[in-house]
């Protein structure tokens, strides 16, 4: 597979949120006015000015407390449903070299729901545009790591050629599985942002994997949508 990919090893993440700020810093995105909702996670959700968000969940697994971290962002799907659903070729396109899925000013007027993102990523701004992670494509074209990857202190965020990242993810999975039999890679063959999780995916986030929580959509259907844009119309009927 050509192009680039992220490998996000959540087992190494410490939820320092360096990636959240590095993303805002590089993109010069404004801060949101937030409140403490009784959680270390803030903001509450992704937004037009928050492309990256470390989601945090406290769960008890087999009687043991776990604090799970999930640095959420656009998955840059290999066959992005949002591109197909957008209708307008100029609104959402896939960069040839990197595989980055890019939103442009032509997203004006589209609603996030219209794009049927299985990971619930796109967000609308005040001026009617949609926004999300752009893979720091300007940096990548200039030989630099995406801001979130570069800033990650603990080695959770990785970036490189797709095959290499997938290979790294698989090798790391084998290591993690020895101590965490429930560990898995999330939709590894379908996305350019491959997550490794140690526990059941839904414990991290309701949209951690494609379609699992989409009303009226089975996982198989969701995956079909991801992999085969031509069956999309059928599946969504």
């Amino acid at each position: 597979m050509k192009g680039k990919a992220f490998f996000i090893d959540t087992t190494l993440c410490t939820a320092c949120k360096g990636c959240q700020v590095a993303c805002k810093q590089w993109h010069q995105l404004p801060a949101e006015k937030t409140v403490n909702r009784g959680s270390f996670q803030n903001p509450e959700d992704l937004s037009f000015s928050t492309y990256k968000l470390v989601r945090m969940e406290e769960v008890v697994v087999d009687g043991k407390l776990k604090w799970l971290y999930f640095p959420d962002q656009c998955r840059h799907c290999l066959e992005p449903p949002c591109r197909d659903m957008a209708g307008d070729k100029d609104a959402v396109y896939k960069d040839e070299k990197t595989g980055a899925v890019i939103y442009t000013a032509a997203t004006k007027g589209l609603a996030p729901e219209d794009l049927e993102c299985p990971y619930n990523i796109p967000r609308k701004g005040e001026k009617g545009l949609l926004a999300k992670c752009d893979m720091c494509i300007d940096r990548v074209y200039n030989g630099q790591l995406p801001a979130c990857v570069k800033t990650c202190p603990a080695g959770a965020m990785n970036f490189g050629d797709f095959d290499e990242m997938l290979d790294m993810a698989k090798k790391r999975l084998a290591v993690v599985k020895k101590t965490n039999p429930n560990a898995s890679l999330l939709d590894p063959e379908m996305v350019r942002v491959i997550y490794l999780v140690a526990e059941a995916p839904l414990l991290y986030h309701q949209f951690s994997v494609a379609g699992l929580r989409r009303p009226g959509m089975t996982r198989a259907a969701a995956l079909r949508k991801l992999t085969d844009p031509f069956t999309r119309a059928v599946a969504s009927v």
Binding site: D95, M157, N158, F159, D161
Partner: peptide, 30 residues
């Protein structure tokens, strides 16, 4: 650039082997 080819936790990742010719408007100068 050299250092960006080395990952943080001692795991190796690939070089970012692009040609730098701009292909789209987004591939601007930093």
């Amino acid at each position: 650039i050299k250092i960006t080819g080395v990952t943080t936790a001692g795991l190796a990742i690939g070089k970012l082997g692009f040609d730098l010719s701009p292909v789209k408007a987004h591939a601007q100068m930093l």
